[in-house]
C-alpha cells in the first residue's frame, strides 16, 4: 500500500514538472502511433471504400482476411516485421531494426486492417439509394467514392480512432522491432514495462496515467461520433 501511495505521489510530481523521460516517451508514442494511424487512414480508407462498394469474386474472402487482420496478435506482427528488417532479412538494406520506422511499419500493419474493415462496413451501411441519387445528380464513379467517404466521415473517424487506440496501447510489436531505446523508440507502453521491471513505479504510474488519458480521449471522440444524428 505504501508502495502505491508513494508511486502515485511521485507520478503526480513527474506529471506536474513535465519530467523529460515522461515527455519523451509521450511524444515518441504520439509520433509513432500518429504516423502509423495516418498512414493506415491514407491507404485504408480508399481500400475500405473500394471493398465496401465493389462486387467481385473473392470479395468475401478478402473481407474475412481483413477481419482476421483486425485481430492480429501484436507479437506475431512484431516477429514478422523484425525478421523482415533484420540485416539478414529481405528489407535489411533499410537498416530499420530498432528504429521508429520499424515501429511505424509494425503499428501500420496492426492498425490498417481495422481501418480498412471498419471503413468497408461504414460505406456499406450507407443507403444504396443514395448511390443512385448521386448517379442521378451526375456523379462520376470517383466523385461518388469521394462523397460517400465524406458522408461516412464519422464512422471513418471512429475507425481511425479504433486503429490509434489499438496501436497506442500496443507493446509486443513495438518492443520487438523498436528495441525500447531511451529518447527514441521508448514509447509509453515499453517505458511502463521497463519501469515496472526496474521497480520505478512512480514513473510507471505517471506514464500509465498519460496512456489512460489518451485512451479516454480516443473513446470520447468515438462516442461523440456515434451519437451524431443523421439526415432523413
Amino acid at each position: 500500500m505504501d508502495l502505491i501511495l508513494q508511486g502515485l505521489g511521485e507520478a503526480a510530481s513527474r506529471l506536474v514538472s513535465l519530467d523529460p523521460d515522461v515527455r519523451e516517451a509521450t511524444s515518441a508514442a504520439l509520433a509513432v502511433s500518429g504516423i502509423a494511424t495516418a498512414l493506415s487512414v491514407a491507404t485504408g480508407v480508399p481500400a475500405g471504400a473500394w471493398l465496401g462498394l465493389s462486387r467481385f469474386r473473392g470479395r468475401k474472402l478478402l473481407l474475412s482476411l481483413v477481419n482476421t487482420g483486425m485481430g492480429l496478435p501484436p507479437v506475431v506482427v512484431g516477429l514478422f516485421v523484425a525478421v523482415l528488417v533484420w540485416r539478414s532479412g529481405p528489407f535489411g538494406g533499410l537498416d530499420w531494426y530498432c528504429t521508429r520506422q520499424a515501429m511505424v511499419a509494425a503499428q501500420y500493419l496492426l492498425a490498417a486492417p481495422t481501418v480498412v474493415g471498419l471503413t468497408a462496413i461504414a460505406i456499406q451501411a450507407i443507403d444504396p439509394m443514395l448511390h443512385l441519387q448521386l448517379s442521378a445528380l451526375g456523379a462520376t464513379r470517383i466523385q461518388m467514392l469521394g462523397i460517400l467517404v465524406r458522408e461516412a466521415r464519422l464512422p471513418i473517424l471512429t475507425a481511425a480512432m479504433a486503429g490509434f487506440g489499438a496501436v497506442i496501447s500496443e507493446i509486443g510489436a513495438s518492443l520487438m522491432v523498436g528495441c525500447n531505446i531511451k529518447g527514441d523508440t521508448r514509447i509509453l507502453t515499453t517505458a511502463i514495462a521497463l519501469d515496472t521491471s526496474k521497480g520505478e513505479f512512480g514513473s510507471a504510474f505517471a506514464l500509465a496515467f498519460i496512456l489512460l488519458l489518451l485512451v479516454f480521449a480516443v473513446n470520447a471522440v468515438t462516442t461523440w461520433a456515434q451519437q451524431r444524428r443523421r439526415p432523413l
Partner: peptide
C-alpha cells in the same frame, strides 16, 4: 446524359 436531367426520389436522400 444524367447531367442534363434530374431525379428526385421517394425519400429525400440528403447528405450530412
Amino acid at each position: 446524359y444524367r447531367r442534363r436531367i434530374a431525379v428526385a426520389f421517394q425519400r429525400p436522400l440528403l447528405l450530412d
